[in-house]
Design a protein around this nucleic acid. Sequence first.
DNA 1: AGCAATTTAGAAACGCAATTGCTTTATGTA
DNA 2: TACATAAAGCAATTGCGTTTCTAAATTGCT
Lengths: 412, 412
Amino acid sequence: MPMSTDPSGAPALAGGTATTLRQRNSSAVLDIVRRASTPLRVAEIAQAASLSRPTVETVAEGLLDQDWLLLADADDAGAPSVGRPARLYRFNERAGFVLGVDVGAHSVTVAIGDLRGGIVATERHRVAPELPAIERLAATSDVIAALIAHTGIARSDILAMTVGTPGTVSPATDRVGLSPGMPGWPEVDVVGALAASVDCAIELENDANLAAVGERARGIGAGCADMVFLLLGERLGAGIIANDALVRGRNGAAGELGYVPVRGARDRDPRFGPLESRVNASALVRMGLRAAAEHPDSALAASAELSAGDVTLAATRGDAYASGLVRRLARRIAHGIAPTLLTLNPELLVVGGGVSLAGEVLRSALASAITKVVLYPPEVRLSALGDEAVVLGAVTQSLERVEADVLARVSA
Amino acid sequence: MPMSTDPSGAPALAGGTATTLRQRNSSAVLDIVRRASTPLRVAEIAQAASLSRPTVETVAEGLLDQDWLLLADADDAGAPSVGRPARLYRFNERAGFVLGVDVGAHSVTVAIGDLRGGIVATERHRVAPELPAIERLAATSDVIAALIAHTGIARSDILAMTVGTPGTVSPATDRVGLSPGMPGWPEVDVVGALAASVDCAIELENDANLAAVGERARGIGAGCADMVFLLLGERLGAGIIANDALVRGRNGAAGELGYVPVRGARDRDPRFGPLESRVNASALVRMGLRAAAEHPDSALAASAELSAGDVTLAATRGDAYASGLVRRLARRIAHGIAPTLLTLNPELLVVGGGVSLAGEVLRSALASAITKVVLYPPEVRLSALGDEAVVLGAVTQSLERVEADVLARVSA
DNA sequence: AGCAATTTAGAAACGCAATTGCTTTATGTA
DNA sequence: TACATAAAGCAATTGCGTTTCTAAATTGCT
């Protein structure tokens, strides 16, 4: 009988000296104040932290000295207005900042957020999809620099940066694996190149993963433990959250649903996976062109050059043919991702990306199609963040890193 | 901009008083000694725990008083035999015990393990698949009681029990959802009925999930962060581990891959899901009967009553027709679970259950079929634990619960 | 304006736990 | 029997959290 030789080297519950205890209590106090929606009195913090008032007092004083906390004005909280007024502590959400970056095929977006998750500023630049990797990196650096300059935030105050990119991101090496949409992208060292832009840790992450994180934190489905985010445009990718954590897989290739094998996707564009080529924006255009030829009375026939946006727009405006195409697309998607939903049994499926602009037609069609192929159908929602899901998720991810690495280790 | 209102009530890093510190250090010391393969000297523990020797000394003394630790004989460790001999502490793996229970359609298995994961004793009783739920519960209680009596372990020394069952297990209610193989099973309160058998917490868990846990802890793929365990017999279920944790989903229905929709599975047995009915033991029998009729020279034609075991046996013995059938089955499985593998990108796929008795033929066929439909094919292995995977996983699960609930809270 | 009531801030005393540094004990070897 | 060596045991010190008391700053009432 082999014993369970779990080779996890680090003991999870490391004890320590009295100083460790003080550090933990500092973090706990900071955490409580940070999560609170109003400024807190010392007594309130003490109760929340299960600590005595004098302890909280000294700890809070220390955090005040280090600018993690600020004193709030008395009128900010509904305090009982009799007796000596309490000092009110509030979290200094501008004690540091975090960056989120979305390097997409068509645009580079950067957002800077404060330590409470509030977005301070955003900057987006459009780029050509065929832009060489080096220039794409340069453009990214430029946008980051512009945003930092524009907001006047000190470089040293930026505590973490997360970069979202299409393609797989190997967790070990922080390099992009396959990323068919952007030429030369897997060959460049994204993290290395952007390291000159900031003085903090940089994390590289798949864009669909970040969209899932963003949507969970600030959009649809707050605090949902198990969810799937479908990023569907020209490409199809999924961000998967299980047990409140991102699922990345061995190669960071988890959620690459575009490559789900599908019957009838034989003579497809080799740049796309089988399912992808059946449900992406181009597929919708192909379907639209065929419908336009067959039905000249459709709104689809109006455009000379039909784009995916034309089809989704026509669908949202109620064109019967366009809506029919969207419904057919929804059935294909449902069939393709059914095993994913059966595998994870998530509460929620969020649809984002360009194709999600088809709106409620797509959502309801997808929901009903899923009901037919799955045991416990999840709720189906459209992305609430649209094309900002990835950047906002990147900011959220940076923030989580700061919480774990910085805020959990405040000293005094 | 909405702030990230994460409604997680409990602050993760709760600090505390000096007593808390002592408790943490006690747990750390206990943990270190428990994970060590040889008895440890105080100085060694102190180094591993980053604590001073006197502290470890008093803590260890307390753990000795409470029987969590024992003194080992001097000759047990390769110590330098000069100077005053060190006291050697070792973990008392018999300070408590954990139970694992596998209530299957055909048998009830119970195993008792010590706190190091070693299996002390096992007991299995065969039962009829059509046994009513009440009697199945009674049989389970009997086996548990028999094992406890047989080993002579005090009831109060049993610290946790985990019960594995086919079907979905709702995490909130601890009730079995759908479980088509066992009549009346979802209607009974399994945990409630077995509560009389022990004086500890009882956890109910899906059998495939436990098989995954067991295989990860004591079989193939030790410490693998992302893996899928396919439990394939008459039914098809999967246990999924992502980020080192079981994925249960909202309804505990994660991994119910038997219900993956498949073309060409129309006129199927309504008790089975589409994919299930195409790849389960009965499907193999149907394929075998057809092959036997067409090819009287096959070993398959020898048996009057063909069973799945006959086919897998013939395949392992090298019968060409039987092997061909197994390969075809493997292709069907590969196609059905491809989206699951794309979704999770696991390192490892373990195949267990009755059909896995087909052995290497199945494994290699599955591995090569998977390579064709997946981006990064996982390693494919056969279960090393066979029909003990579920019980052993149950024991492992109980042990993990004890680690979190008991060992992490030792007092002095 | 002055005083009581009320609530918070600040300070002293105490106790627990971990650390450093020293002494004592138990063994092997000359 | 002495000596070297390594570990156990003990005392003093320090850091932190808690309890308990006293001082301070308000509102409301007379």
